[in-house]
Design a protein around this nucleic acid. Structure first.
Lengths: 104, 104
DNA sequence: GTCCGGCCAGATCAAAACGGCATTGGACGG
DNA sequence: CCGTCCAATGCCGTTTTGATCTGGCCGGAC
């Protein structure tokens, strides 16, 4: 399972359509189709129901969607938090971390 | 940023040593070294201090470590939750999801 | 001062993953 | 039956990842 697969999944779930999701992701349709399939294989359950009108979330997909969004948000948060800690704030900054920052 | 990079990071943080982390991850040392570097490049901040005795977490790394563990746990949770929803439970199961499951 | 051991990082090559294009196969409407 | 829309597959080139080998850096032993 990769973060790309999770992003693909969320987009397909939102669009209900692999082709449109691929456009939003700036990749071709087969790439999205394959990654969704791989994700389902790894989890061991179908996440979507394939219909001639597009893709519909199955119950496992609905559950996974909530988690997937949380994961993507957590990833962004993690990077932001590390970056924020990386910049050297001015002395006497309001962050509680300022007092436990070593000199090095 | 990839989940592998996050796993590599957590292991190196726990071991304080790229070589030992690589052993635990069943990959070679340079692979871990490169992924850690790539992660730092993407975030835009050094996460470790390189010393001749090993790797020590810098403040951004300490912050990132908490988030990283949460992400990995969330990924496992997501897969487990989807799988749990994927199995068809017996009628009258105690899960509240049972009542909103379509016939499939 | 010199040698040795541990550790991280770079270069190079091979394997795997990924994506794109072209195409197939299934369902629906005219 | 034919055109349209959608997802899935085959094939190929590109990108990414990892393994191996090698070098540089530092500390300890003597």
């Amino acid at each position: 399972m990769s973060l790309s697969q999770i992003r693909y999944f969320v987009t397909v779930a939102e669009e209900g359509n692999v082709g449109r999701a691929a456009q939003r992701l700036y990749v071709a349709q087969p790439a999205v189709s394959r990654q969704i399939r791989a994700l389902e294989d790894e989890i061991g359950t179908r996440l979507f129901s394939r219909t001639p009108r597009g893709m519909t979330l199955l119950p496992p997909g609905r559950v996974f969607l909530d988690h997937a969004r949380a994961i993507l948000a957590a990833v962004d948060d993690a990077a932001d938090a590390a970056r924020a800690e990386g910049v050297t704030p001015p002395v006497g900054a309001s962050s509680p971390a300022a007092s436990r920052r070593p000199p090095g």
